Amino acid sequence: MYAALWRVLPGSNATKAAVAVALFLAFVGILFLWVFPAVQPMLPFDQITLESEPTSSAAP
């Protein structure tokens, strides 16, 4: 898949690398701006329940 993407990108190796980095940053930006906020309400990370163990006063 990456080799096919590399062949499709225009220009020299430096241009291809710059375009690949720009595409990666755009992909990460889309994830942080739209995808992660859209799925955040469905994730249970804000529903934390801790159960404490009964403590004993006896020394070991």
Rank of each mutant, 00 (worst) to 15 (best):
P44D: 07
G29Q: 05
D46A: 10
F24C: 08
W34E: 08
R7A: 15
A18T: 02
G11R: 04
S57I: 11
L25M: 12
V28D: 01
I48T: 11
E53K: 08
Q40M: 11
T15F: 02
M42A: 15
A18F: 06
V35M: 00
A20Q: 08
A38H: 09
S57R: 10
N13I: 03
Y2M: 06
S12D: 15
L33V: 14
N13A: 15
P10H: 03
L9W: 06
K16E: 05
L50Q: 09
F36M: 11
W6R: 14
A59K: 03
A3P: 01
E53Q: 10
V35E: 00
A26M: 11
E53L: 09
P60K: 01
G29Y: 07
A22P: 00
S12K: 07
L25W: 07
P44K: 02
W6C: 05
I48Y: 06
T49K: 14
P60S: 09
F36H: 07
F36W: 12
T49F: 14
P60I: 05
V28A: 04
I30G: 01
V35K: 00
F45E: 05
T55S: 08
A58S: 13
L50T: 09
A22D: 04
W6S: 11
A22Q: 06
A59D: 11
R7G: 04
P41Y: 06
V39L: 11
L25C: 09
A17F: 10
G11K: 02
L23M: 14
K16F: 04
T55K: 13
S56E: 04
V28C: 03
P10K: 03
A20H: 10
A38D: 10
M42T: 13
A4V: 00
P41F: 03
V21N: 06
F32N: 13
V28N: 02
L31N: 04
G11H: 01
A58I: 14
L31M: 12
A3N: 14
A14W: 11
L23A: 15
D46E: 14
G11Q: 04
P41T: 05
S56D: 08
V8H: 14
A20K: 06
S52R: 13
K16W: 03
P54K: 02
E51F: 09
A22L: 08
S12F: 02
L50S: 08
I30E: 04
P54N: 05
A26F: 06
W6N: 13
T55A: 09
N13K: 14
I30M: 02
L50R: 13
W6E: 15
A4P: 04
A4E: 13
A18D: 12
V28F: 07
M42W: 15
I48N: 10
G29T: 15
V8L: 15
A38K: 10
A22Y: 02
G29M: 09
F45S: 08
V19K: 12
I30N: 00
N13F: 07
V28I: 14
T15I: 12
E51P: 00
T49G: 06
E53W: 05
V35N: 02
M42V: 11
P44F: 01
Q40G: 04
P60T: 08
S52I: 03
